[in-house]
């Protein structure tokens, strides 16, 4: 192996199996709030999901057992280099979602696109902003104007009197 593992495959398999098991348990727990047996109109609301939940937990335990059984293997889930690349791409997406929730998708897209171009693409500010604004204009033309599907707007649009 040339690159050092940041996260081993076994660790991730175990974490994922535990996570799916937790979802299965949550499904079972949520189903118990309803009748999981036989109601007036046949199987009650919780009947089907409860059994699905049980099966998810069982399947997850099999995956967990297999992962632990093979824990001797040296498979890598993520190297440090890969983690850096994923975070460099993923964290701006997170910022874009948070920004969009407060400022709307138009402003969010302009800020996100131009910031990535400037800081990761090495472009100058002006062309980056121009492209961002061009995309926002295109979004406005295509979605609310042409297809009559409004996009999420924020305080800026309200201030400008656009909706």
């Amino acid at each position: 192996m040339t690159e050092r593992a940041l996260v081993s495959r076994t660790t991730m398999e175990v974490v994922t199996a535990l996570a799916t098991a937790a979802i299965g348990a949550a499904v079972m727990w949520g189903s118990i709030e309803h009748d999981i047996g036989w109601g007036d109109s046949g199987p009650a609301a919780g009947y089907f999901p409860f059994r699905i939940g049980v099966l998810i937990v069982l399947g997850s335990f099999v995956n967990l057992a297999v992962a632990l059984w093979r824990r001797g293997t040296q498979d890598v889930f993520l190297t440090a280099e890969q983690a850096k690349r994923v975070l460099a791409f993923g964290l701006p997406i997170l910022a874009f979602v948070v920004l969009s929730l407060f400022l709307g998708l138009y402003v969010g897209a302009i800020l996100y696109l131009s910031a990535v171009m400037v800081f990761q693409g090495g472009y100058r500010l002006l062309p980056s902003l121009t492209l961002g604004v061009a995309v926002a204009v295109a979004m406005r033309l295509i979605f609310p104007m042409w297809f009559k599907v409004p996009l999420l707007t924020g305080p800026l649009e309200a201030w400008l009197g656009l909706y």
Partner: peptide, 19 residues
């Protein structure tokens, strides 16, 4: 360059999620 096209795809995905 992917610094342009990648984020554009992301924006399109989230516009899709909103609509």
């Amino acid at each position: 360059p992917f610094a342009i096209i990648g984020p554009l795809i992301v924006v399109v995905c989230f516009i899709g999620a909103w609509t």
